[in-house]
Amino acid sequence: MNERVWQLLLDSFWQILLPGIRVTIPLTLVSFSLGLIIALLTAMVQVANIPVVKQIARIYVWIIRGTPLLVQLFVIFYGLPSVGIILDAIPSAIIVFSFNTGAYASETVRAAIEAVPVGQIEAGYCVGMNYLQIMGRIVLPQALRTAFPPLSNSLIGLVKDTSLAANITVVEMFLAGQRIAANSLEVMAIYCEVAFVYLLFCTVLTKLQTYCEKRMKTY
């Protein structure tokens, strides 16, 4: 590689990292947090076996998991205006990513809740606790620890999936890179640089996951 390419990579690094910090990371964190709340609710209504709501939860998971994320983005951003609902690109992306994460993570959370031995729930009843107290103090703390590694997977997956938002005009890391590549014509170098920054983000998350798992090992 010649000097010009090196210089280009150096100059463009901030131009790629900046939308990463200002768009990709907040978009990921907000969507993931909302997704977790959706996942928890979706899992809980299924475990608690609440009629009707439980069926709605199953249908939601079925539809989200059965359709491509990219198509979901297009339906919300390009499709909804035709029925009179116009959303900006960022809110559209947050909605789609939240519900997408929520559907996948709900299955993780549900499995983790069901993995807590039923005997502990019975013991909770026997010492006088009610269902919500048992859930909140005994079952969920243990379930979330079990769910932590697969949820970390979802988070890392989401970091990369946010690049799809480039297709609905969100100027996140990938779209920023795409523009630089188009202008400079150093396609290979720039896309590799974009990939490198994603790798950087995900490396930090992986390290964080290892650290948290160690700290959770008290019981």
């Binding site: 031995p117 005997g119 502990q120 019975e122 013991a123 909770g124 009843y125 026997c126 006088g128 103090r137 005994i138 703390p141 243990q142 620890r145 019981y219």
Partner: peptide, 17 residues
């Protein structure tokens, strides 16, 4: 239940406490 106690075969202690 608040007037009784129960001891299980498999102890069933809360693992996170």
């Amino acid at each position: 239940r608040k007037k009784t106690g129960f001891v299980f075969q498999n102890y069933n202690l809360f693992r996170n406490k």
